[in-house]
């Protein structure tokens, strides 16, 4: 990639609207977000023109989430059907979570039978929130998910905040654990699709990691419908972290593990419910403390 040129172009971002001619030069190749109209290359979306050597594409300012294999996503079960759950994750189409792609209570080596198929709603029913990983894509472009690790599965003891998916940066860690003060823990699952689950933190940060030898109780607890007891202090901390994430999104900054913590610290002198209204001030203060 011609980086030198790229940086020079960065100084003067080229915005286009749908139907606007990006270039009339025929040497360029047609990329995403553009089409050929005779000799001209025309934008199909509103966004920024990106050029990689001879390939011209337009990156939309607002886009639906289209994931990649391996992305951690947070979604809501919208339908229970034959051998699969349909999951709304804010993409163009609902994703599918196959019965064969989940851990069933009773150990990994258990055989799946027809009775499992009939009891699918006991595991996950409509409206349930889950975290999962994108396993692959079907022919029609819809994603196939899996939860075949103990870190994925049903989400409890917290609330959902939704941000534009473009603000979530793909990184090593999407399961974040914050210790805000001694004994006050908040967990954040940063879905690549812009769904963020903020919940009461587990005391032991390592518990969220992969557990190679899962016990029966762990697997059973995976589908339980019971919240952990939450104190008022913890509830306020969950609300504050949620509002911080919304404030970051409002200022169109990337949502990362470190930045959430900085913004949280900057927000402490402001009342929890006023964080989003004062987002500019808080984000500026957080940036200063970098």
């Amino acid at each position: 990639m011609d980086t030198e040129m790229g940086e020079a172009e960065h100084a003067m971002l080229h915005f286009v609207t749908p139907g606007e001619t990006v270039t009339a030069d025929t040497v360029f190749m047609r990329g995403h977000g553009t089409y050929n109209d005779g000799e001209e290359l025309v934008a199909t979306v509103a966004g920024v023109v990106e050029r990689i050597n001879k390939l011209i594409s337009v990156k939309p300012l607002r886009a639906r989430f289209s994931g990649e294999i391996g992305d951690v996503v947070v979604g809501r079960i919208s339908e229970v059907t034959q051998k699969r759950w349909r999951v709304n994750m804010g993409a163009r189409q609902d994703a599918a979570l196959l019965l064969a792609a989940v851990n069933l209570p009773g150990g990994e080596l258990r055989r799946r039978s027809e009775s499992d198929e009939l009891q699918m709603r006991q595991l996950l029913s409509e409206g349930d929130m889950i975290s999962a990983e994108i396993q692959g894509f079907f022919q029609d472009g819809s994603a196939s998910l899996h939860t075949r690790s103990l870190k994925y599965g049903k989400l409890r003891s917290g609330s959902l905040v939704t941000v534009p998916s473009s603000l979530v940066k793909r990184s090593k860690a999407h399961f974040l654990h914050y210790t805000l003060s001694p004994g006050l823990h908040v967990d954040v699952i940063l879905g690549m699709n812009g769904f963020v689950w903020v919940s009461k933190g587990s005391k032991d940060a390592n518990k969220k990691g992969d557990v190679p030898n899962s016990t029966q109780e762990d697997a059973d607890a995976l589908y339980a419908n019971v919240n952990e007891p939450i104190t008022n202090e913890e509830r306020m901390a969950i609300a504050r972290v949620s509002n911080c994430i919304l404030a970051i999104a409002k200022e169109s900054e990337l949502i990362t593990e470190a930045f959430i913590l900085l913004v949280h610290e900057a927000s402490l002198r402001i009342d929890c419910k006023d964080i989003v209204a004062n987002s500019k001030q808080i984000i500026d203060a957080a940036k200063m403390s970098y």
Partner: peptide, 14 residues
């Protein structure tokens, strides 16, 4: 809207 049991409980206790 379908809401999960946990979310409803979280909202109610909140």
């Amino acid at each position: 809207m379908a809401v999960s049991v946990c979310e409803r409980e979280f909202t109610l206790t909140g």
